[in-house]
């Protein structure tokens, strides 16, 4: 009501804009929007369209131009086994992350919900997530070093042989996923913890009075009511994992190694795009692979929307 009265006053004072343009219309909005609009058009909208265009060219960064080659890059992409190999590696990394991160995060969140609301504890859990990927990678490359790493020293206490975390082709992706899990488990747990706070305590109390066990309550109350937040967490994990780059680049690229090594066993799709663009100077082809990755990410996001709707909490 107040709003309507005020706006009609304003429009009476400035009849130029009429009552359909409450609060002055574009003339006053323009200056508020201008900087953000410049940034959006220059660094989001225009490059997104230009990216699609570049994917149809043989763009060369040194000359910084390219000529139209039609669908050549896409033909090549479909026949490039390395693209599909990179995607396979990326999916493997993603699946490991989903499993380890979700299980650990749910466990931490549920226990925290029971034990403590301490901000200090939540802060400690969040700390790894705030540290740059590059630094996290370096910390763990040292801790997981095959010769001197503390983790191998620790495993040695149990009589285990040293594990070559980064130089064994079968172990490098699980190692990288483990590093990422370390960085993200606290953050994910905090998201789930926030979701837990929305579940009414009365449900648990009623169930307890009815003699339900802890396990039954977890299965029949916590999990169903957490569905929306779990769906969200899942999508954040998947979308983030599909775009892993920094950790791989730094953890495998230092100390005489090749990024994506050993033997390209950790060449994730982001790294393959990077190599095509900046090592092989084939920006058109790199852009075509990015288009493919965007299609995959949009599919995941679309499925998320469906999942979220289908999974709206029973409280809603």
């Amino acid at each position: 009501m107040i709003q309507t009265a005020a706006s009609s006053q304003v429009s009476r004072r400035r009849p130029l804009f009429g009552s359909s343009n409450l609060h002055g219309g574009w003339r006053s909005a323009f200056w508020f929007l201008l900087p953000a609009l410049v940034g959006f058009v220059a660094f989001y909208l225009y490059p997104a369209l230009r990216g699609v265009y570049i994917s149809f060219t043989d763009w060369n960064l040194i000359a910084n131009r390219g000529s139209w080659v039609g669908a050549d890059n896409y033909d090549r992409l479909l026949n490039d086994r390395q693209v599909w190999e990179s995607l396979k590696i990326t999916f493997k990394y993603t699946v490991i992350n989903i499993v380890t991160q979700t299980i650990l995060a749910v466990a931490i969140a549920v226990l925290m919900d029971r034990l403590t609301k301490s901000v200090t504890i939540r802060g400690i859990l969040l700390l790894p997530w705030l540290i740059p990927n590059v630094i996290v990678a370096l910390l763990w490359v040292w801790m997981l070093d095959g010769n001197l790493g503390i983790v191998n020293e620790f495993l040695g206490l149990f009589g285990m042989d040293p594990v070559r975390f980064f130089t064994d082709t079968g172990k490098v992706i699980p190692s990288l996923a483990g590093i990422n899990t370390w960085r993200h488990m606290g953050y994910t747990a905090l998201l789930i913890f926030a979701g837990l706070q929305t579940i009414p305590r009365s449900l648990y109390e009623a169930a307890a009075v009815d003699g339900a066990s802890e396990r039954q309550m977890f299965r029949d109350i916590t999990i169903p009511l957490l569905r929306p937040i779990l769906a969200l967490v899942l999508v954040i994990t998947i979308v983030g994992s599909l775009q892993v780059f920094d950790t791989v680049f730094v953890a495998t690229g230092g100390f005489g190694g090749q990024p994506g090594g050993p033997a390209n066993a950790s060449r994730v799709i982001y790294l393959y795009i990077y190599q095509n663009a900046f090592d092989f100077n084939q920006l058109g082809y790199a852009a075509a692979i990015s288009v493919l990755l965007v299609a995959i990410l949009l599919t995941v996001t679309f499925l998320q929307l469906k999942l979220l709707r289908a999974g709206e909490s029973d409280l809603a």
Partner: peptide, 17 residues
């Protein structure tokens, strides 16, 4: 909708720009 554009997609055109 800009939230859905992954950084790698704008990386190359932005670098060209």
């Amino acid at each position: 909708s800009g939230l859905m554009i992954p950084p790698i997609f704008t990386l190359i055109p932005n670098l060209v720009l």
